[in-house]
Design a protein around this nucleic acid. Structure first.
Lengths: 245, 245
DNA sequence: CGTTATTGTGTCCATAGGACGCAATTAGTG
DNA sequence: CACTAATTGCGTCCTATGGACACAATAACG
């Protein structure tokens, strides 16, 4: 297939694999490679040429071995993806900010930075999967930033989802800055130019945005909006609870 | 590859194809199938079995023909995706709401509904691509809902991105309600149970969320937060501009 | 030192997308 | 009313990918 999905069984298998601890070995030859080494190689390829170029073949070539040798370390492609993701995520940034607002902003920025370093992360993260240790750690950090925030558990989870969704959208956009992607933008521009009467608001919004120059604060803008929204919810609740008591 | 990406050239080609108007034909046999019919078949397969199951082969089988026959109507797989997407999106909902707030809420809900009907849309929309006519129409509708909103063009675009990102995240989550996906959730639960001390906030947030029962208003919650944020930005600007004049 | 699990890797297969070629078909044209 | 030429349906063939299997070489352990 051209891309993207994996069957359910593989997804579960990948999760189990990710959380399995290294079993001490006994007999047999010493492993010539390591899981980390393989992950690194795969990540390097993804960084250079995109996730599509990551095939067992290429990873093997990069390590100077053959495709099938890898299967001794990684059960399959799905597991490779899982390992790549959890490796590339790295440890979460720990904000020592006391207040939830700057803490969440720092968290979102941290996620954004990581994702920008390895844009293919977006694809993997948004694919249905069970989070690995590192990914859960990020989650944990995000929730930690919200301890002081008077929201219900489900709401906090939703909030993180909202922020992550926003960050990932932006990374997708910014990753599309390569030469070939510019052509897509150019395409859209010429389409809009031709049918401006069909899409008046769109045409003018883009025109206006171009005039503004490249606003580089889309991340901040979005996060601020969300956090403002949270703030007003909190304020509203505080008001209604005090008037009730 | 397992899934997901398409090379840049294909993406551009797909866009051109999408916006090309049907050329009047002259000689030759009458086409036995139609582009719409093919799109419908592909969409049906995607709805039933997921995007991965959509192969030229299967689409052809469904139409009672052979794979290669389809290539007379569709240049390639990338173009098929593009057509599927733009067809499944359909016409945007038109909210007659005057105020931007209910209008945007209606818009977001509309996007959510469409995406829930064909969950694979999420994958295609978030892939780098040039929007087709229908997709642009949705965009246009979203911008139209914001006419009264005193924001700059770039900000409006960012806002739509933010909302779409949120909606798509939710659809991804909700689409994961099938039996196999439940296993992923179960997996996560057992992981959290085992290492609750490593991820305390996460564990408790999930526990709390479970107690609340399935909150079905994640969509509303997120959108409200964003719109609240927009409202406070607008209020803030109104205040500072009036104090400056 | 033999037993046995484990590693590296070659061979073989199915499925995907897609290039090419060619016969059958039919809108215009003289 | 043929004749020309474009266009359709579709069989054949090729390449890449993930992956199952088989098997010999290797090394820990009793």
């Amino acid at each position: 297939m051209t891309e993207g999905e994996v069957d359910a069984a593989s997804r579960v298998a990948a999760a189990v694999f990710l959380w399995a601890q290294p079993s001490g070995r006994r007999p047999g030859p010493k492993p010539k490679y390591t899981l980390d080494g393989i992950a690194e190689a795969a990540i390097a390829i993804a960084d250079e040429s995109g996730l599509d170029e990551v095939t067992m073949q290429r990873v093997a070539e990069r390590l100077g071995t053959t495709k099938m040798a890898l299967y001794r370390y990684v059960p399959g492609r799905a597991e490779l993806d899982a390992v790549m993701l959890d490796t590339a995520l790295g440890a979460p940034v720990v904000a020592d900010e006391a207040h939830w607002r700057p803490a969440l902003m720092a968290w979102a920025t941290g996620v954004h930075d990581r994702a920008m370093t390895h844009p293919w992360i977006v694809e993997l993260v948004q694919r249905p999967h069970t989070p690995g240790p590192r990914e859960l750690a990020w989650f944990e950090a995000g929730l930690g930033a919200m301890v002081e925030l008077p929201l219900r558990g489900g709401e906090k989870l939703d909030l993180l989802t909202l922020l992550v969704g926003h960050v990932m959208s932006l990374v997708r956009q910014r990753d599309s800055s390569g030469a070939p992607e510019q052509q897509l933008a150019a395409n859209l521009a010429s389409i809009l130019a031709t049918r401006a009467e069909l899409y008046p608001w769109t045409a003018s919004a883009f025109a206006e945005a171009d005039d503004d120059g490249a606003r580089d604060d889309a991340l901040r803008f979005g996060v601020e909006r969300v956090l403002d929204g949270v703030a007003s919810l909190v304020a509203e609740r505080a008001a209604s609870s005090s008037s009730h008591s």
